[in-house]
Deep mutational scan, measured.
Amino acid sequence: GFTKEQQRLGIPKDPRQWTETHVRDWVMWAVNEFSLKGVDFQKFCMNGAALCALGKDCFLELAPDFVGDILWEHLEILQKE
Rank of each mutant, 00 (worst) to 15 (best):
F59Q: 01
E76P: 07
H22N: 14
E76H: 10
R24F: 06
G1N: 15
E76A: 12
G1S: 12
P15C: 06
I70M: 09
L62T: 04
L71Q: 00
F41R: 10
V31L: 05
T21G: 13
E33C: 09
A49Q: 13
P15M: 06
M46W: 03
V67A: 11
L51F: 01
L9Y: 08
D69A: 12
V67R: 08
L75R: 01
Q42L: 05
Q7W: 09
A30K: 05
G10D: 14
R24K: 15
T3P: 08
K56W: 02
H74D: 07
F41H: 15
M28Q: 14
F59P: 00
A50H: 10
Q17S: 11
E5R: 09
Q42P: 07
K37Q: 14
G1C: 07
K13E: 10
D25P: 00
F59I: 04
L75K: 04
R24L: 11
R24S: 08
L60V: 11
M28R: 14
F44P: 01
A30F: 07
F41Y: 15
G48N: 02
G48V: 02
E61V: 04
D25V: 11
E33M: 05
Q6D: 06
I70P: 06
P15E: 00
T21F: 09
C58L: 13
M28Y: 08
D40P: 05
K4F: 15
Q42S: 13
K37L: 08
D40E: 11
H74A: 09
D40W: 02
L9C: 10
H74S: 10
G68Y: 03
V67I: 08
Q7V: 13
L62Q: 06
Q6A: 14
A63E: 03
L9P: 05
T3H: 11
G38N: 15
E20W: 04
F34Y: 13
E73L: 06
N47I: 02
I70F: 08
I77L: 15
W29C: 05
A53K: 13
E61A: 13
K37S: 12
D57I: 08
G48E: 02
C58M: 13
L62C: 06
G48W: 02
I77G: 15
W18S: 01
F41I: 14
K13S: 14
V39R: 02
L54W: 03
L54G: 07
Q42F: 03
Q17M: 14
P12E: 05
F44C: 00
R16N: 15
L71Y: 00
D25N: 12
I77Q: 12
Q6K: 08
V31F: 03
L71K: 00
F44D: 02
T21W: 07
D65P: 15
F2R: 06
E33Y: 10
F2N: 08
W26Y: 06
R8L: 10
D14T: 03
E5K: 08
I70Q: 12
W72L: 05
M28A: 13
G10K: 13
L60A: 13
V27M: 12
M46L: 10
T3L: 11
E33A: 10
T21I: 08
M46P: 01
D25G: 12
P12Q: 01
C52A: 06
L9R: 13
N47Y: 02
A49C: 05
R8I: 08
N32G: 13
C45L: 10
N47G: 08
K43N: 11
L62M: 10
V39S: 03
R8M: 08
T19H: 08
V67C: 12
V23H: 01
F66W: 09
Q42R: 13
E20T: 12
Q7N: 13
L78N: 02
H74W: 03
H74E: 13
K56P: 04
D65S: 14
H22I: 01
I11K: 02
L62A: 04
G48D: 01
L9G: 07
T3Y: 07
K4Q: 12
K43H: 07
K4E: 14
C45P: 05
F44K: 00
K43V: 04
N47V: 01
M46S: 02
A49L: 09
N47S: 14
L54R: 07
F66S: 15
G55I: 02
E33G: 04
Q6L: 13
Q42A: 10
R8C: 08
L36W: 06
V27A: 07
G10I: 07
L78D: 04
L36Q: 03
W26Q: 01
C52L: 12
C58G: 15
G38V: 04
L51N: 02
D69I: 12
L62Y: 08
K4D: 11
F59M: 07
D65A: 14
L75N: 02
E76T: 08
K37G: 11
P15G: 01
V31Q: 09
W18A: 00
E5V: 11
Q6V: 10
L9H: 07
T21A: 14
E33Q: 10
S35V: 05
G1L: 08
E20N: 09
K37W: 07
F66R: 15
L75S: 02
G38W: 04
V31C: 13
G38Y: 06
E33I: 04
C52F: 05
A30P: 02
T19R: 07
T21C: 10
L36G: 03
C45I: 08
A53C: 08
L9N: 08
T21P: 07
L60Q: 15
Q6I: 15
C45Q: 14
I70E: 05
W29Q: 03
L60G: 10
R16C: 12
C58I: 10
K37I: 11
T21V: 12
M28L: 13
A63D: 01
Q42E: 14
N32P: 04
L51C: 02
F59H: 00
G55H: 11
V31Y: 04
P15R: 00
T3V: 11
V27Q: 02
Q6G: 09
F44L: 08
L60Y: 11
D14G: 01
Q7A: 11
F34C: 04
E61R: 12
W26M: 01
F59W: 05
Q6P: 05
R8P: 09
V31S: 10
W26S: 00
E73T: 07
W72G: 02
L54F: 05
F66K: 15
W18E: 01
W72I: 00
F59R: 04
R8Q: 10
Q6Y: 11
M28F: 10
C52T: 12
K13V: 09
P12C: 06
K13M: 10
W72D: 00
D25R: 13
W18D: 00
M28P: 01
K43T: 06
P64D: 09
H22S: 04
A63W: 13
E76N: 15
G68R: 05
W26K: 02
L75D: 01
V39C: 07
V39T: 05
G10L: 06
D40C: 09
D57E: 14
F34E: 04
E5Q: 09
K43I: 04
C58Y: 14
L51I: 08
A50E: 14
A53R: 12
D14P: 02
M46G: 03
F2Y: 08
D57M: 08
F66D: 15
L78E: 04
F34L: 06
K4T: 10
W26L: 00
V67N: 06
S35H: 10
K4H: 08
W72R: 03
R24N: 11
C45N: 15
E33F: 09
L9E: 06
L51P: 02
L78T: 06
L60P: 03
F44N: 00
E73H: 05
L78C: 08
Q17G: 08
E73Y: 05
L54V: 06
L75Q: 00
Q7Y: 09
V31K: 08
A63N: 05
A63I: 12
K37C: 09
A30N: 09
K56Q: 07
N47P: 14
K13I: 13
V23F: 01
A63S: 09
G55R: 12
F44W: 08
G68E: 00
L54K: 09
I77V: 15
L51G: 00
F34A: 04
W29Y: 07
N47W: 00
A50Q: 14
L75C: 00
W26G: 01
G68F: 01
T3M: 13
E76M: 15
A30H: 09
W26V: 01
K37Y: 06
L9V: 09
P64S: 07
V39H: 04
L9A: 08
R8Y: 07
E76F: 06
N32I: 07
I11Q: 05
P64T: 07
K43Q: 10
F66T: 15
K43Y: 05
